[in-house]
Simulated assay, not measured.
Amino acid sequence: MGLEAVVEEIREKGRSEAEKIRLESKQDVDAILAAANKKAGEIKLAAEEESAKQAAHILSQEVSAANLLVKRELLNTQKALLDQAYEAVLKDIAALPESFHREAIKKLLAEAKKEIPKGKVSCNARDVAAAKAVIAENPEFSGFKLGEPVNIDGGILVEGEGAELQIDYSYRTFLSGVWESGLKDASDILFG
């Protein structure tokens, strides 16, 4: 064997060895790339899931906030309507004929007399004549005298002698009591 044959054989072994190393490197690179792609896919999937979860959470918060705002507006509107109804009732009661107010004053004064037998009776300017007539026409009310007109929707305010005891029998006071006790029922009927 000549020197050329030995060199050729060494070259052939070198080529074979280089090809084997290249093949092993390619397999290593492919395995590393496959693992990296798998890891990247897992990260991408986890990020997409987290993103979807956060988007759903934000959407849920926004929907809840919007629902709360709508409910608040609805309640404010309902309250405004109920307030209008309350004021309309007071206005309608005030517009009733003088005979109604006169009879109401008589009944309220009889009720007040149970707690305050003598004192001063005050009413609004509209009802002064009716109150004066009720006190003058009914001997059981002789212990009462008429005070100055007060700013109430109707009814009476009674103050005992010495101003120790006061009773508020104004229409607004009675309506407020009825209103508070019946507000839930009225709201249920009106707004279901």
Score class of each variant (00 low, 15 high):
170 S>Q: 00
188 D>H: 03
37 N>T: 09
68 L>Q: 07
11 R>S: 09
149 P>N: 07
98 E>T: 14
4 E>T: 08
153 D>V: 12
61 Q>M: 07
171 Y>L: 11
51 S>I: 02
133 A>D: 15
126 R>W: 05
70 V>R: 06
124 N>S: 09
56 A>V: 06
48 E>F: 10
35 A>M: 10
64 S>E: 08
119 G>Y: 04
95 A>W: 02
26 K>V: 14
33 L>I: 12
54 Q>P: 06
131 A>Y: 01
185 D>R: 15
38 K>P: 01
79 K>S: 07
113 K>I: 04
148 E>F: 09
132 K>M: 10
12 E>W: 13
165 L>I: 11
63 V>E: 09
147 G>H: 05
99 S>D: 09
25 S>I: 10
132 K>A: 12
103 E>G: 01
106 K>A: 07
126 R>A: 10
60 S>T: 08
62 E>F: 01
38 K>H: 13
23 L>C: 06
48 E>V: 03
48 E>L: 08
51 S>H: 14
9 E>T: 10
101 H>K: 00
5 A>G: 14
19 E>P: 01
140 E>Y: 02
69 L>P: 00
143 G>T: 06
176 S>G: 07
124 N>V: 05
39 K>P: 11
82 L>C: 01
55 A>C: 04
74 L>Y: 10
80 A>C: 03
158 V>C: 06
104 A>D: 15
80 A>K: 15
132 K>T: 13
177 G>E: 13
23 L>G: 06
34 A>G: 10
116 I>P: 12
176 S>A: 13
164 E>S: 12
8 E>Q: 12
103 E>I: 04
62 E>S: 11
2 G>N: 14
5 A>M: 11
68 L>W: 09
7 V>Y: 12
109 L>T: 07
141 F>N: 02
55 A>H: 09
24 E>Y: 03
10 I>L: 13
86 Y>D: 01
152 I>W: 07
4 E>S: 14
189 I>K: 07
122 S>V: 01
173 T>R: 03
133 A>L: 05
81 L>W: 13
161 E>R: 01
84 Q>L: 14
29 V>H: 07
107 K>M: 08
99 S>I: 15
43 I>V: 14
96 L>Q: 11
130 A>V: 03
130 A>S: 13
128 V>T: 05
156 I>S: 00
46 A>Y: 01
